[in-house]
Write a protein that binds this DNA or RNA. Structure first.
Length: 600
RNA sequence: GGCCCGGUGGUGUAGCGGCUAACAUACGGCCCUGUCAAGGCUGAGAUCGUGGGUUCGAAUCCCAUCCGGGUCGCCA
């Protein structure tokens, strides 16, 4: 080794030792007669002192050295002179008096500072990702990610799970996200697909008798990107035989609880995890992934709204829409401008508008007078109505009430967006609290208006809720399948979906029934899913699983603002790798070998 | 595909119809033995993403386009 100790590990215990260090020059402070270099490696930074009277050769190296040069330094650790300690540095009580120094490599002036407190354009960071990753905060993200994955492996290994690798080149299926395709050279005109997840493979492993499977699996989906979505991402893929939903949820809860307590003990979690049904989550929070760190639960007031003369409410209700809203506690003092900003935020979220009430003063609602009520134009109603509304929504004097009108699905979505924004803005969302919770009883099917047919809400292998299989048997085209529940569940945290899973169908005749409802012909089922259905004929055990997203989890644990900050080499929103320049054109002969011709 | 935000020395920003395009920092040189975002002096460095247009005159206004970010659609 070119070094005997790591920079960031030096402390008083090393005083008078003579270590050899190696690392990058983080800072250089040249006082003319004495030079301080902050030397950085993965472990941290330590100050090295170069004194020309003590070691002129080392001093000459320090004179030459610049930011990001790679140095090897030998010297003596000593306590810093009284008064010159730096409490901001973990190694700030000591320093290394250099006796020899060697330049291992020089460096160009980097395009941006290698430091945490510097905001740099993200495309520049991505183009020089190897420099960006030198920043301590990025190193911490990589290290935390490693610890998370390490914890998962140890945890599952201790519980008899087998890590099994599955192929990256598989068969394209029409269900779900758009596939990334890989052309076959040996069978021109045919394509592999990259797996959206190892879903069918892990079910086949259950038929194979593996019983407990997991994999840290790379998944690929050719869909548009977001702050929390990359075209390739990592899941803990997990499947168990001979289990019911409760077994999977209990395992997941134990895994996350122990992981957080081990890896990020400074984070608080709610024990046991709250559980909401999908319907409950939608009713109370307008979202299937609610942020449970704060209240502001929603109330449907369509019936009360009907009593008003407000045109927007009336026409919305006539068209089957709802009027729903929530209380912002203690914010009756919002100014007209702040309310206008909220209205704009609502419109940005897609809503047509936003109504509000501000209930001024204190004391019981009974004491409310007309002059205490500041209300949106068009909503002015007798005090008695205002009191009933406030009571229903749980508003007190001093609070602000926000109301929206719209079709149920959209209205919920807009309200949920607004609720999250306010939760952040008002500081109600504690960054150290991980409000992990299960959402259960998802619908089995969603109506797809575009293709005029039923889609799987989760995926087509999801088992219907207990007791609802009979409804499937009676299915006729045209039936409303939207009330059918499934044995699908999500793990959510602070407003994002962290994991998704279900108990699977293991009987071929039920599986075929679901495919029929999804609109597949017998031939299509055979062509697309025949391998799975055939396997199920050979004694498929009851099974189920879950697939937690690793990237999103680490994003939340690190407090990163984007999934890209916890992936070593992520892609931009247009799917580009700015470091490699991918995707890129390929040689004509490569295309010819694959039997591919480009169209203009 | 829609909507929103951004693109000005290496970096981060200011400038929003008339400037020699400003500031900070990084970078080069000189001075400086206890700093830690060291300090002082000094120097070099941008035709303002790209292409059109309007105008006597465009970083600034208009159109198109590219790139980055957020979001809706999409993501079983």
């Amino acid at each position: 080794m070119l070094k005997s100790v790591n920079c960031g590990e030096l402390d008083e215990g090393h005083i008078a030792t003579q270590p050899t260090l190696a690392g990058w020059v983080a800072r250089r402070r040249d006082h003319g007669g004495i030079i301080f270099l902050d030397l950085r490696d993965r472990s941290g930074v330590v100050q090295v002192v170069f004194n020309p009277e003590q070691s002129p050769e080392a001093y000459r190296v320090a004179e030459q050295a610049r930011s990001e040069w790679v140095l090897q330094v030998a010297g003596t650790v000593s306590r810093r002179p009284a008064g010159s300690e730096n409490p901001a540095m973990p190694t700030g009580n000591v320093e290394v008096m250099a006796s020899t120094a060697r330049v291992l490599n020089s460096a160009l002036t980097p395009p941006f500072y290698i430091a945490d407190d510097v905001e740099v354009d993200e495309s520049l960071r991505l183009r020089y990702r190897y420099l960006d990753l030198r920043r301590p905060v990025m190193q911490r993200n990589l290290i935390l990610r490693h610890r998370v994955v390490k914890f998962i492996r140890d945890f599952l290994d201790a519980r008899d799970f087998l890590e099994v690798e599955t192929p990256i080149l598989i068969k394209s299926t029409p269900e779900g996200a758009r596939d990334f395709l890989v052309p076959s050279r040996m069978q021109k005109g045919s394509f592999y697909a990259l797996p959206q997840s190892p879903q069918q493979l892990k079910q086949l492993l259950m038929v194979a008798g593996v019983e407990r499977y997991f994999q840290i699996a790379r998944c690929f989906r050719d869909e548009d990107l977001r702050a929390d979505r990359q075209p390739e991402f990592t899941q803990l893929d997990l499947e168990m035989s001979f289990v019911d939903q409760e077994d999977i949820l209990a395992l997941t809860e134990a895994l996350y609880t122990q992981m957080v307590e081990t890896v990020t003990p400074e984070k608080q979690i709610i024990k046991p995890f709250p559980r909401l049904t999908y319907d409950e989550a939608m009713t109370r929070f307008g979202s299937d992934k609610p942020d449970l760190r704060f209240g502001m639960e929603m109330t449907d007031v369509t019936d009360l709204a009907k009593e008003t003369q407000f045109r927007v409410f009336q026409t919305t209700i006539e068209k089957g829409g709802i009027i729903k809203g929530f209380v912002v506690p203690g914010q009756a003092g919002y100014t007209t401008q702040q309310v206008r900003d909220l209205e704009q935020a609502a419109r940005d979220a897609g809503a047509a508008g936003l109504s509000h009430l501000r209930l001024r003063g204190t004391g019981p609602l009974g004491g409310l007078k007309d002059e205490d009520v500041v209300i949106s134009a068009g909503l002015r109603m007798p005090l008695e109505w205002t009191r009933r509304l406030a009571e229903r929504m749980g508003a007190r004097r001093g609070d602000m009430v926000l109301l929206m009108a719209g079709p149920p699905k959209q209205c919920n979505q807009w309200l949920s967006t607004l609720r999250h924004q306010l939760g952040q803005k008002l500081g109600l969302a504690d960054p150290n609290l991980l409000a992990l919770a299960f959402v259960t009883d998802f619908p089995l099917f969603d109506w797809n208006e575009e293709s005029k047919r039923w889609d799987s809400a989760h995926h087509p292998f999801t088992a219907p809720a207990e007791g609802e299989e009979a409804l499937l048997d009676q299915f006729k085209p045209g039936d409303d399948m939207s009330r059918l529940r499934s044995r699908a569940y999500d793990l959510v945290c602070n407003g994002s979906e962290l994991a998704s899973g279900s108990i699977r169908i293991h009987r071929p005749e039920l599986q075929e029934k679901v495919f029929t409802i999804l609109g597949y012909t017998k031939e299509q089922v055979k062509a697309q899913f025949g391998h799975l259905l055939e396997a199920f004929e050979y004694g498929a055990p009851p099974h189920g699983g879950i697939a937690p997203g690793i990237d999103r989890l680490v994003t939340i644990l690190t407090g990163a603002s984007s999934i890209r900050d916890v992936i070593a080499f992520p892609k931009t929103q247009s799917g580009a790798d700015l470091l490699f320049g991918a995707p890129s054109a390929v040689d004509a002969h490569q295309l010819r070998e694959l039997g591919i011709r480009l169209v203009e």
